[in-house]
C-alpha cells in the first residue's frame, strides 16, 4: 500500500466522515460547556481569592493551587473511576466536564487575577469616591478593563481546554479522538486519525491566529 492509501484513504475517510463529525460535535459541546463553567467558576474563585473574608481566601488559594498542580488525566480518571466508590456517579460527559472545569477554572482564576491587578488603583479610587457599591465598582469599572486585558491569555486557556477534551476518550466518551480510533480499528486504516487531526486544526488554528493578532493590537495600543 502506498502512502496515500495508508494515510489519506479517501474511501475510508468518506465512510468514517459521519462518525468523525459526530465526534467533532461532541468535542465542541464538551469544550464549550467546560469553557462556560470554568470561566464562571474562575471569576468566582478570583473574587473570593482577592476580596473574600480570610477563610474564603485560603480555600480559594488552596483550590487554585491544587488544580493547577494535578495532571488532568489523573483527575479525570479519579472523577470517573474513583468517585463511584463513594456513591458519586458521573456520566462520561459530566465526568469530563467536571475534570476539565476544575483545572481550567484554576487557570482562569489566575489569569483574571493578573487582569484585575493590572487595573490602575486610581480606577478603584475613582469608583469608591463616587460612592459606588463594591458590586457596581467591579461590574462597571474594574472587570470590563481587567477582562479586556486578559482576552489573549484566556483565549489560550480556551484553546488548551478544547485540546484537552481529547483526554475524555479515556472515559469512553465518543468524542472526536475516540471516534477516530474506533474507525481506525474498524477499517484497519489510520486515515480517520489523520481526518481527526485535520478537524482539530480546523477549529483551533483560527483561534490561535486570533490570539496572536489581538496580542499584537494590544501591544501597539499600549505603546501608543
Amino acid at each position: 500500500m502506498g502512502l496515500m492509501e495508508t494515510f489519506f484513504n479517501l474511501d475510508v475517510l468518506h465512510s468514517s466522515a459521519l462518525a468523525l463529525l459526530e465526534g467533532l460535535k461532541l468535542t465542541i459541546t464538551l469544550g464549550l460547556t467546560s469553557l462556560v463553567t470554568s470561566f464562571a467558576a474562575g471569576l468566582i474563585l478570583v473574587l473570593g481569592r482577592l476580596y473574600g473574608p480570610m477563610p474564603i481566601r485560603v480555600i480559594a488559594i488552596a483550590f487554585i493551587d491544587i488544580f493547577r498542580a494535578i495532571p488532568l488525566l489523573v483527575l479525570l480518571v479519579l472523577v470517573y473511576y474513583a468517585l463511584p466508590f463513594v456513591g458519586i456517579n458521573f456520566s462520561p460527559f459530566w465526568a469530563a466536564v467536571t475534570a476539565l472545569s476544575l483545572v481550567a477554572s484554576a487557570y482562569a482564576a489566575e489569569c483574571f487575577r493578573a487582569g484585575i491587578e493590572a487595573v490602575a488603583i486610581g480606577q478603584f479610587e475613582a469608583a469608591k469616591a463616587l460612592g459606588f457599591s463594591w458590586t457596581d465598582m467591579m461590574k462597571d469599572v474594574v472587570l470590563p478593563q481587567a477582562l479586556r486585558l486578559v482576552i489573549p491569555p484566556s483565549t489560550g486557556i480556551g484553546i488548551s481546554l478544547i485540546k484537552d477534551t481529547a483526554l475524555a476518550s479515556v472515559v469512553a466518551m465518543p468524542d472526536l479522538l475516540k471516534q477516530a480510533l474506533q474507525a481506525q480499528a474498524f477499517y484497519a486504516n489510520p486515515s480517520p486519525l489523520i481526518g481527526a487531526a485535520l478537524l482539530y486544526l480546523i477549529i483551533l488554528l483560527p483561534l490561535v491566529r486570533i490570539v496572536s493578532s489581538i496580542e499584537e493590537r494590544q501591544k501597539r495600543a499600549a505603546g501608543r
Binding site: 490602575a120 459606588f132 469599572v141 478593563q145 479586556r148
Partner: peptide
Amino acid sequence: NKVRAEVGMVFQQFNLFPH
C-alpha cells in the same frame, strides 16, 4: 457610601474610566 456620595473628588491623574 452615603458619605462618599456627598463628597466629590478630583484626582491628580484624572482617573476617568477609559472604557
